[in-house]
Write a protein that binds this DNA or RNA. Structure first.
Lengths: 343, 343
DNA sequence: GTTAGCACTCATTCCCGTCGAGTGCTAACA
DNA sequence: TGTTAGCACTCGACGGGAATGAGTGCTAAC
């Protein structure tokens, strides 16, 4: 890392330029940016050095230079300028957040949309599992004739339905029984035994066959591994970048962004504290080798944890993305504290 | 419509061929399909006639012909062969449906996915509004400290949350009051007055400011115009077709498929009874001028209505799509009847 | 250490000839 | 009268240079 100040400035200028244009950057272009009063020949020498050191790549002999993964890495670590988010955007963000007096779960989903709005890149956000939040209530409601709906309230609301007939009164009584057993438990603590006990209590006033169906469904609903939810916003934005002007590449990426399983793995990856970038080959997924991610882990006061990830081309506007995530995390933290503590 | 049998056969052969290849079809290709023992010269004469009549288009002098919108229309109305859906696909569909013992609402969403699976095109399905289904139950549950969740059960489950503190007991009592007033009403019948009456009953045991917040939220949730839900499946499939090898076109189409407002208009358009195609310029939306839709309206026994639409290139496999929708509609009708009547 | 100058490289663009698929027309045939 | 063989013609696709120009590396002079 023994880069002279001049080399740093040149590298920075090259990457800044390349982020804007996606075209290889030539020595003349840099020399004309004048702030450093050097001729193109001098810049060329420095560029040759930077290439030798691994920070730049020359696509072919007579082309300019583009940053290597290492170049971007150095840029993100040491060179990136501070990005000032417009006061308008901040105000907009705040008003968006205020208008959404809502459940944490919805807030999270919304945060992904906001991040995408601010950065103009695709975002992926994972909502925490909720098997750590206790069961507040279970409802049994007869809806259409022949259908009974089960509603399990934890931090979220899950619902399922069973196709049996049960009177309103039957629902009521069964609901009370279920609540007596389950309320206060955490979903993963519920076992077959717990359910069996409910059955014992209910046998008598509900036909066994019906009871079985309902309780089976209840068990499934409660224990269905409270999946990490994944929300993707603005996936189509990738089509704006020349990196994806090839339809096949675009399709591959969009398929990836549709694949919840892969995205869960992505969200589960360790990206350390705070806001961090993973650049090109640093990514585990083959398909992300030419892209970069900027990820931010978050934890809710209630204990859940998740991750917000911005996905873009390697030449993404890192400083803007970092600043945006920082802003969002601050604003939301304020909001969450306000809701939790009332101040 | 005074097309000779021979012209019909030729037109049919051309469209069948073009649907498979997306390349202009030449006279020789058709003549070699031998079933009609004609030379390419004769075919050429017929093709020239068909072009003059408006059923075919010649992209340029020395190219073959492609079908015009009118050509497709004639094909769909009179020429299309019956498509036999593989027995495997039928079995698969049935097992998929069986394994999803579930709420109608989910079933609808699922139907869209199945249609997309069978046809390999993008599908858009609209779920009926539910403001015609009565309120079965309203729940008031304290979840996190400082958050009260409202759950309104109609045919669907809607939920919202308010950031106030209310004891479990308070929730319970308020819930009972609300249910006494709202249960059995239809969402659109609920007025400010209805809510005011609840308030009168509850004043006393809940602080006014808290009560106001909760009831405001309740009113919003109940009357929020029970939106027509729209589900899009397999939007990325368009990227498979040469019609969308241009990234800009693909992006425009994907944006369209992301735009719920436009899709609602699409779902609201009148497409008549049963299964119908709208081809190219027959579509109202600019962006669909080079695509075709096949739409099927459905009504639920409970009264709600919606539409399942398959979107693909104009040269889509109409017969397969028609057959698929027909199959789905039959299977689901069976299923719905079974659930409603128990047989 | 910096820079001007110059030869060199190589992707891009454009031109142009060739190829071939496919047509329309005409004349001959059944 | 309908069908077909034959032929000239059209025009997009493909491929090989030539010209262009952006950008480089190297050298020599400052």
């Amino acid at each position: 890392m023994d880069l002279s100040d001049r080399k740093k400035k040149i590298l920075q200028a090259i990457i800044d330029e390349y982020i804007g244009t996606a075209e290889p950057v030539g020595s003349r272009a840099i020399s004309k940016k004048e702030n450093l009063g050097l001729s193109s020949a001098t810049i060329r020498n420095e560029m040759a050095d930077l290439e030798e050191m691994g920070y730049l790549i020359q696509p072919h002999t007579s082309a300019g230079r583009i940053p290597s993964d290492e170049g971007y890495r150095f840029y993100v670590n040491s060179l990136m300028r501070d990005y000032k988010i417009g006061i308008d955007a901040v105000a907009q963000l705040q008003s968006m957040l205020e208008s959404r007096v809502s459940l944490l779960d919805k807030l999270i989903r919304y945060a992904g949309a906001i991040a995408s709005n601010l950065t103009e890149y695709t975002t992926v956000i994972s909502a925490p599992k909720d098997d750590d939040s206790e069961i507040k209530k279970v409802d049994v409601v007869a809806v259409e004739s022949h259908t009974v709906m089960l509603i399990v309230v934890t931090r979220r609301v899950r619902n399922a339905s069973v196709n049996v007939s049960l009177s309103g009164e039957g629902c009521e009584r069964l609901g009370q029984l279920i609540n007596k057993s389950l309320a206060g438990m955490k979903p993963h603590e519920v076992t077959r035994d717990t359910i069996e006990k409910i059955k014992d209590g209910a046998t008598g006033f509900i036909k066994d066959s019906i009871l079985d169906k309902i309780l089976d469904c209840l068990y499934d609903t409660v224990t269905a591994d409270a999946e990490t939810e994944i929300y993707v916003t603005n996936a189509n934005s990738i089509l704006r970048y020349p990196e994806f002007s090839d339809v096949d590449k675009a399709r591959d990426m969009l398929s990836f962004l549709d694949d919840k399983e892969k995205l869960k793995k992505l969200a589960a990856a360790d990206t350390g504290e705070g806001i961090n970038a993973t650049i090109g080959k640093e990514n585990d997924f083959e398909i992300l080798q030419d892209s970069s991610l900027v990820s931010m882990n978050y934890t809710l006061p209630s204990g859940g944890a998740g991750k917000l990830t911005v996905i873009g081309p390697k030449r993404m506007n890192y400083s803007k993305v970092f600043a945006s995530l920082d802003l969002i995390s601050n604003e939301i933290e304020k909001l969450v504290n306000y809701y939790m503590n009332g101040s």
